[in-house]
Design a protein around this nucleic acid. Structure first.
Length: 559
RNA sequence: UGGGGCGUGGCCAAGCGGUAAGGCAAGGGACUUUGGAUCCCUGAUUCGGAGGUUCGAAUCCUCCCGCCCCAGCCA
């Protein structure tokens, strides 16, 4: 089975496999190169799993490198959060690197390019540069500064570095071809002047390298063999190669592109995510509805479920939109095997067992996880007064309704069979209580006569129950593909008003008093829940990670 | 109308000239002290389209169509 798995390589694995076989490389080194200007999301997780996964699979190494070449956007706390997220996902980097550590080397290579007549200082304004770049169908025009002599360029570049020019006054440009059909090759900017303090280099520099100029060199310095990035950089590959081919470098990396992840009903763009946080639509970057690593973590996703998901979606070059159901499936699959089953009544309805002794109580033996008997059993208190789910009773039950109704019998999980004898209502006709009768013979959930009951309900003993807060989460947006918003509408038009529902009357069985933030449970017949970081021993808060599959809901929806 | 990339069932995705893997979703059934889980079964006569090469094409060639990306001193 594993052999087949190894045979089925994605296109990048095939390239690596071939490179190793042909001897083009002895050992592979990859890297995950985030810019510390925001929090990581599930799309980054795909890249992380790919890069670190490749290193693991081929016995190579993977670096974590901060691509911190823009002091205007980058901050230390993002860097720390990114490191934590990568570790949480379960990966260890071979080296922790920073593009900003290479600034001096970048400068030397820039000087080399100037000396080779391949770069020049341009005094055109940003607008002039834009205007002379040409368009998709028309070539650009050469800058009037393009043919300055080398000595002059060297001198000007030094002045740029020394801070003798203001921001925007000039840039260093690569001298390639202003009529190149690939716009990226039309004398791209290498250095711009930014008189801003950098979070790591402080005020040491006032010129900062552009991505295209820097990235290949970062890879070359670290000995990266396979530099993997997303599809939109494919157009930049000729430039990546150009910079590497025109100076002396310690190693020759190659760039490969794959399709970034899109997930239905959510967005991956940092801008939109930032908007959700900034406008208070979500509580923060770690809001459990966010597709961020921190959001998923708080929602209750495990690192292994996210890794599994990334493995399942595959790696290819076609733009794709993955159903969020696949993400849900991976966490259900894992938690089904591992999570302790526990009973919590989300919307309580009181039940009085009329023929149960008034002050009696007993302990019911309860299986912690039928999928894993080694998880053992525990004792759950039972008494005359219980809560069941409001939804588990219908005064006028529809067809195929297996739950409680007047005169009908159901099983209380692991406890007894009960039959509803009377419905108590308040003055407005709302059902406030059920009077039931239990069968003492049915203890444990079966009777000597072997009669069958279709419905099995979860329950909580009222005097023993613990009041808890439950946060029910759902999709953030109502539109499956958020890149297909209608004209004139933007993302606020598509917010799901039911993405968060807070229940404050829920009642849990007493074991949950011991639950710690991050613990995960299956609430029987409801779904998987985790203890939220806001939770305290006095007010326990549970987040719903994902609901259980609900076949009954499906039957109902069909009419 | 320049350049680059991509088109395999509802969503991903294998396939690399020898007769369409797998997962998710969907539907049907079995089982069930979670209407959970599990287990069976069903679904592309067909690979964006049209030609061509070949004994044989999703795989090779030609043309066409569709979608995505690129005109930051962002990454």
């Amino acid at each position: 089975m594993e052999l087949e798995n190894e045979k089925q390589l994605n296109f990048i694995e095939q390239i690596i496999s071939d490179d190793l076989e042909s001897g083009r490389v002895q050992e592979i080194i990859t890297r995950f190169p985030p810019e510390p200007n925001g929090y990581l999301h599930i799309g980054h997780a795909k890249s992380i799993c790919l890069n670190f996964g490749l290193a693991e699979k081929f016995n190579g190494k993977c670096n974590l490198r901060f691509d911190d070449t823009n002091p205007e956007k980058e901050e230390e706390h993002y860097m720390e959060a990114i490191k934590e997220d990568v570790r949480w996902l379960g990966f260890q980097w071979a080296k922790l690197c920073y593009a900003s550590d290479y600034f001096e080397q970048f400068y030397r290579w820039a000087v080399d390019l100037v000396k080779a007549g391949l770069a020049y200082v341009d005094h055109q304004s940003p607008e002039e540069i834009r205007q002379t770049r040409g368009t998709l169908t028309e070539p650009g025009e050469n800058s009037p500064y393009r043919n300055r002599d080398i000595e002059k360029n060297l001198e000007l570049l030094q002045k740029m570095r020394k801070g003798e020019f203001d921001e925007g006054e000039c840039v260093l440009r690569a001298k390639i071809d202003m009529s190149h059909p690939n716009i990226n090759m039309r004398d791209p900017v290498m250095y711009r002047i930014l008189k801003k303090a950098h979070y790591r280099t402080g005020n040491l520099w006032c010129i900062y390298p552009m991505y295209d100029f820097a990235h290949g060199y970062e890879d070359a310095i670290e000995g990266i063999t396979h530099s993997i990035c997303t599809l939109e950089f494919a157009d930049h590959r000729p430039l990546y190669d150009w910079f590497l081919e025109n100076v002396d470098i310690p190693s020759r990396p190659r760039q490969y592109e794959f399709a970034r992840l899109n997930l239905s009903y959510t967005v991956m763009s940092k801008r939109l995510l930032l908007g959700l946080v900034g406008e208070g639509i979500v509580s923060g970057w770690d809001d459990p509805r966010m597709p961020t690593i921190q959001g998923l973590r708080r929602r209750g996703y495990t690192p292994s479920s996210i890794r599994k998901f990334c493995q399942e979606i595959g790696v290819a070059k076609s733009n794709s939109m993955v159903d969020y159901e696949l993400l849900e499936h991976t966490i259900r699959e894992e938690l089904n095997a591992k999570a302790q089953r526990v009973m919590v009544v989300l919307h309580p309805l009181k039940v009085i067992i009329e023929n149960y002794p008034d002050d009696a109580e007993e302990l019911i033996k309860y299986q912690n996880n039928p999928e894993d008997p080694s998880m053992g059993t525990r004792m759950v208190p039972f008494s005359k007064e219980l809560y069941i789910e409001r939804d588990d009773f219908r005064e006028d039950p529809p067809k195929k309704y297996f739950r409680l109704a007047p005169g009908k019998e159901v099983r209380l999980k692991h406890a007894y069979y009960i039959t509803c004898r009377e419905v108590i209502k308040d003055e407005w006709g709302n059902i406030v209580e059920l009077r039931c009768e239990y069968d003492p013979e049915s203890k444990g959930g079966e009777t000597p006569d072997g009669r069958k009951v279709r419905g099995t309900l979860h329950w909580v003993s009222a005097p023993h129950g613990v009041k808890v807060e439950i946060r029910l989460y759902d999709k953030l947006f109502t539109l499956k593909n958020m890149s297909e918003m209608e004209e004139g509408k933007n993302y606020p038009h598509y917010l799901n008003p039911h993405s968060l529902e807070v229940l404050s009357e829920s009642v849990a069985e007493p074991v949950l008093k011991e639950a710690q933030p991050g613990d995960r449970f299956q609430f029987l017949r409801q779904g998987y829940f985790t203890v939220d970081s806001d939770s305290t021993p006095d007010t326990l808060i549970f987040n719903r990670t994902v609901a259980l599959k609900d076949t009954w809901a499906k039957i109902q929806n069909k009419g």
